[in-house]
């Protein structure tokens, strides 16, 4: 009995140890995690506005304003440290950032500025009415895909 408990405990420790090791082995550059999380925060807030724009969710002026203000805040973050050399899809498996980013870093940063402009335009009108959200979300999508067009690996 005692022996099997010890064995179980040992196995548990081993399992957790292995998981921790596996996590360590994944060895994802923290900058990659940071920028991917940043993208998720964008998507989360755009989804709130997008659901209203698609009329799958009822328009809520206060909520729309919150989401738009969040986008402004997210776009204001300087992303310079998100993109260290050697973190493209040619170096890290599962990453979608194309090497073109590092070949055209200036253009890449200019395209990010597009997000500043588009989110500010959204924040200006988000609390007004549904039609304004439906109008402004097009440019927001355009700002996202301006980067995704050149700098993200296309796949499913």
């Amino acid at each position: 009995m005692m022996k099997s408990v010890t064995l179980l405990a040992g196995a548990t420790v081993l399992a957790f140890g292995t998981m921790a090791l596996a996590d360590g082995h994944a060895d994802v550059n923290p900058a990659v995690k940071a920028r991917q999380s940043h993208m998720q925060l964008y998507a989360h807030n755009i989804a709130i506005l997008g659901g209203m724009a698609q009329e799958s969710v009822e328009y809520d002026a206060a909520l729309a304003q919150i989401a738009a203000d969040n986008l402004v805040a997210l776009a204001s973050i300087n992303e310079t440290t998100y993109w260290p050399e050697g973190t493209g899809n040619d170096m890290i498996e599962g990453v979608k950032a194309l090497p073109a980013i590092w070949e055209n870093m200036d253009d890449f940063m200019v395209k990010q500025d597009g997000m500043v402009t588009a989110s500010a335009a959204m924040a200006e009108v988000a609390g007004t009415d549904l039609a304004s959200v439906q109008g402004a979300i097009r440019d927001l999508g355009g700002a996202c895909s301006a980067c995704h067009r050149e700098y993200r690996q296309r796949d499913d």
């Binding site: 998507a43 755009i46 989804a47 997008g50 999508g141 996202c144 895909s145 301006a146 995704h148 067009r149 993200r152 690996q153 296309r154």
Partner: peptide, 10 residues
């Protein structure tokens, strides 16, 4: 899920 189009599909 409010990701956007990328690549040539843009």
């Amino acid at each position: 899920d409010f990701d956007t189009v990328g690549g040539e599909m843009v």
